[in-house]
């Protein structure tokens, strides 16, 4: 972590309008960028010699309920040649969609589907945006903060009749 990481400066140089915020926490660089330009920025990070982020390790979402914009989509990139990581973020409102980066990093196919499934964030131009982990007929998006955790009542002898009466079992 001693070598200076030029990623943030390079992004600022190349896309002066796109950078919203830059943060450095616990040795990790985070750059918040404009949603519309995420595809170009990722392409730039991947193709430039001195950056060479050749793998998008992880893509996920965070729901900040009550804040505007509500959602964050987080990209973790890894450069194997320079042994560096950087984190990019874009912000999105519930009604807004984020450009899909599947074209730049095909690995995000599953990840974007997962974020769509869990948070209901729409990815524009994703080739196959369907639910991936939850059943197709599921209503709601479980990792949203306003989605309840849910629970199963525990059956004891004093309440088991009640519980099993209301429970839907497969027909015999």
């Amino acid at each position: 972590m001693t070598a200076r990481n030029p990623t943030t400066e390079r992004i600022k140089e190349q896309f002066p309008e796109a950078v919203i915020a830059v943060r450095q926490i616990a040795g990790e660089q985070t750059v918040v960028v404009e949603r519309e330009q995420i595809v170009e920025i990722l392409e730039f990070l991947r193709d430039e010699e001195d950056l060479d982020y050749n793998m998008l390790v992880d893509l996920t979402g965070v729901d900040f309920l009550g804040r505007t914009p509500r959602f964050e989509v987080v990209y973790h990139l890894l450069s194997m040649r320079h042994k560096r990581r950087v984190r990019l973020k874009v912000l999105a409102e519930e009604t807004e969609s984020v450009p899909s980066v599947v074209r730049v990093f095909p690995t995000t196919n599953f990840h974007e589907r997962e974020v769509y499934d869990m948070f209901g964030i729409d990815f524009e131009h994703h080739p196959d945006l369907r639910r991936i982990l939850m059943p197709d007929e599921w209503e709601g998006h479980p990792l949203r903060k306003d989605h309840p955790l849910g629970y199963e009542p525990v059956a004891f002898s004093h309440n088991s009749n009640e519980i099993y009466r209301d429970k839907s079992f497969a027909e015999d």
Partner: peptide, 12 residues
């Protein structure tokens, strides 16, 4: 198109 772009074939 870069090599990575051509890899992915959509399954629609």
């Amino acid at each position: 198109l870069t090599p990575a772009d051509t890899l992915f074939e959509p399954d629609i």
